[in-house]
Design a binder for these strands. Sequence first.
RNA 1: GGGCGUAUAGCUCAGGCGGUUAGAGCGUCACACUGAUAAUGUGAAGGUCCCAGGUUCAAGUCCUGGUACGCCCA
Length: 1104
Amino acid sequence: MTENPSPVYPRRGTADERRIPASPRFPRIEDEVLGYWAEDGTFQASIESRPAGESEYVFYDGPPFANGLPHYGHLLTGYVKDLVARYQTQRGRRVERRFGWDTHGLPAELEAMKQLGMTDKAEIEAMGIDKFNDACRASVLKYTREWEEYVTRQARWVDFENDYKTLNVEYMESVIWAFKQLHEKGLTYQGFRVLPYCWKDETPLSNHELRMDDDVYKDRQDPSVTVAFPITGGGADARVGRELAGVNLLAWTTTPWTLPTNFSVAVGPEIEYVVVEAPKDGPLPGKHLLAADLLGAYAKDLGFAAAEDAEAAVVARYRGTELAGLEYQPLWGYYADVSRWGTQNAFRVLVEDYVTTTDGTGLVHQASAYGEEDQRSSEEAGIPVILSVDEGARFLPMFAEPLGDGTAPLADIAGKQVFEANRDIINRLKADGRLVREQSYVHSYPHCWRCRTPLIYKAVTSWYVAVTQFKDRMLEINEQINWIPGNVKHGQFGKWLEGARDWSISRNRYWGSPIPVWVSDDPAYPRTEVYGSLEELKEAFGDYPRNADGEPDLHRPWIDRLTRPNPDDPTGRSTMRRVEDVLDVWFDSGSMQFAQVHYPFENKDWFDSHHPADFIVEYIGQTRGWFYTMHILATALFDRPAFTNVISHGIVLGSDGQKMSKSLRNYPDVTEVLDRDGSDAMRWFLMASPILRGGNLVVTEEGIREGVRQVLLPMWNAWHFFALYANTARGGQGYQAKPVRGQDVDNPLDRYILAATGDLVREATAALDAYDVSSACEALRAYSETLTNWYIRRSRQRFYDEDTAAYDVLYTALETFTRVAAPLLPLISEEIWRGLTGGRSVHLADWPEPDDYLKDERAVELMELTRTIASAGSALRKQAGRRVRLPLRRMTAVVPGAEALRGTYQQIIADELNLKEVELLEAAGVDPAGWGIGQRLAVNARAAGPRLGKQVQQAIKGAKTGDWSVQDGVVTAGGIELQEGEYALETVAEAAQEGMELTVLPGGGFLALDTTVTPELEAEGLARDTVRAIQSVRKALDLDVSDRIEVEIAGAPEALAAAEAHAGLVKTETLALTLRPAESLLGDDVQGAEVGEGLGISLRVVRA
RNA sequence: GGGCGUAUAGCUCAGGCGGUUAGAGCGUCACACUGAUAAUGUGAAGGUCCCAGGUUCAAGUCCUGGUACGCCCA
């Protein structure tokens, strides 16, 4: 081998021109490939080289939110997005990739408030909405540069130039268009929604604000009360109403302050309730109704001495469903005026699934304005939402006003904050004889994350999309979507759709797309207007909404400034004003499918033929987020899905299996990993993992290194090996390899690897077409193993011998491998592919066609059998305690179709196992018993069980203990005759002859290894040990592979004799010009070694 | 508090319709092999299949109850 000053390979390279390092630094190579792409414009070329139109592959970017730095979750989805797009491009599709920025919403506002040092909405109003929104805009675009760097470094190709931002006026125009469409279809309405509410800041909070800090939830002590409601009659079943008239419903609550607005009592449908007659001399004489399970807990309160006494006093039993519609006497008369309050359906028993018997009485007091369940169930029952407190959670003045009978039972609470009013209300209950029990109750209770005030739940007005109206259609359309993993379709997503509720889309905030609804400011002259475009606004208000720079802008406060006289008001005094709310940011995200192309104002034709998207990906939690809102809007607006294929992946966890946490530092730093192992290593680690099949993934450095070891290094080493020999061929001239199809190839190893290459293409294509990324990775991993640890290892000699057929085959294998690996290892594949072919980019190359490769199942099968025999033979050597360097006389392989292994396969086995002879015998012609191969009976319990019943256990026992026989073809085990199919006879190695080791092969047949060691074999073994010892010394001396040496050897006489007897072998193997025995060797340059069974030798090796 | 999900080797996870010796990868240990390779090969150790009942000839698998953890919603 001679160094070639101008080698053939790499033909093109980005890293370190003209040299292929044996130990590559992948991150450095990656950097250079990234630089090459930037310079070459490869990404643009990969899009432009594919035709537009029908063959476009439509991909939507997810909803990343840019006011934070990217993390592992983004990294993961980014890799999936990129690899699918690269794959489809190689398959000939044109894949436009626009980056999307989600910019609106509460997170942006909170970040801006933090930066401005604000804690509540009053401060925002004081500052001015325009200035506040400027701050929001700056905060959401703060990290765009970091994002770009991050995305570029992960080798993700995406268009930042032609991106979309939800804050652009075009985008927002499409959003209000969508709202108007929904409105015209009758799918929007205004209603109440119960939200956590901070009465100090006088603002509702979103549920997500409850998770703002860990200490939002704190234990709090509240009074819990049980109240008696006398039944007056009614009932879905009038008989029950009559029976129960006069009986007290005992209802429980932890919020006594909501009792003035008690409008219903809920019972659980399956819960058993009892009527119990309390002792006449007790605190609460009369009959009471409560859940049977909880009677004991109330026995004392009702005047019983013990639970058993209460049990004995039960006079009737009912199931919850029987109690539906029972009417009861309200606590106080404040809301008794039906014409004023609309309470004609109130003060009755409702049946609700959510009621349990873990606390209280099994009957729950409901106030429609102060609980989500309460509000929903009241709405279904036709009970209105009525607020009893003002913005500061103080009771309204009306409580001080006398009722029809001239009394004002709750006069004390008027103007009092709700928690302070609890005491007054409880005292009143006691005075009225309605209080059954009072108890303090410690529970985890949410507090305002800003001011630490305990929150209340309170109804606020909100706009809704009437999802329940078209829920069934959403379910039908879901059938057209291919979910990965498949169980999400009817599982998490399908179930979520089935339980879909109306979607609350308004937020009483500042930074978002506006709700394009204008209403009259005088209820006496009601009017509502909805606008769906800038032109409509201009027509109605005379101009576009314009910001400080005079640009059309749909943000607050500019849009709020559009007002006009109410045309329905003859007095001309009322004004049309926009409702203050902005849209939930999820409405923006769900609109990206059309808003990113400013549909329908632009790109109408394009959209009509390129929606739904072919593919999207996000984490599984988006079944309630992006996946859901996209699906709602696509169904409502277009009556079709928004996407046809979707991967919903699992969660990325820290190295300790917990959620990733910055403070715990329980995950490897992304930048560190990218700098040390590289992006391809990270990509491989994430893509090969179960996370894309819905599982969770623990991120560890070892896991990432594992990917480097499993594919990146083998791939690189194969390339390095190929180039090494191709460059030194023909006396240093080099050899340029050419692709082969393989039909005319006859070397079995060549046929094997070419056929395996075709199989790789087939498997990877099938996997990626099914979006089964981890299977594609597995196929690549298995192939790289075969290529390096079998094909190349077994073909080494042919490369030494300059067999150019082998060069061509390895070239073909590697070139194909890099094309298949390109989506999964885009950087390193690029470097190798360009080095091999001299082409512009592997990402511009077409995906390989499986039919271009040799198809030879027989060659694969025979080689697999060869590998099986080699590996079983290896185990035999271990069993016999015969090291591999010690040659053995013979191994006999008894297999079906043995003849086909003759020749190369036989040679490979002999070589692998260091055998003088491999004897092949046809299994059909050999009596296994003669070789000590016996049989074992296995009962097929599944087949025999149903027929034999209990006896099958006896037969199994017989088979296990050897109590079985075969006579005239009839198998009997444990005295039970078994029928055909109820048993299987398996071969098992039993008694090997002396000097023989036996093993049964997994696919049938067996091996017999002759373990006899003759002096000749022993000597050769020692000689080979000596070779190994000399090679170690060469390595230790850091000699070049082609350096010639001179060797002196001393030590055990048997070892010296063996070395001498096999001097030829020793010298050729070690490139030794001389091999001189010596009496003894001394000096610093002498190395000791051990050969055979503990024989010592000394060696002196010098360069010749 | 409600809904959904999970629980199998040290770790991550497979285990059709129930079938009798519960598997894989990684990790650990031993041995072998190695001049493209940061490797590789062979083997071993490692299990209360979360717990308690039940159904069945037979339960990791089905049923009931419980426990722990996760996600979503309150």
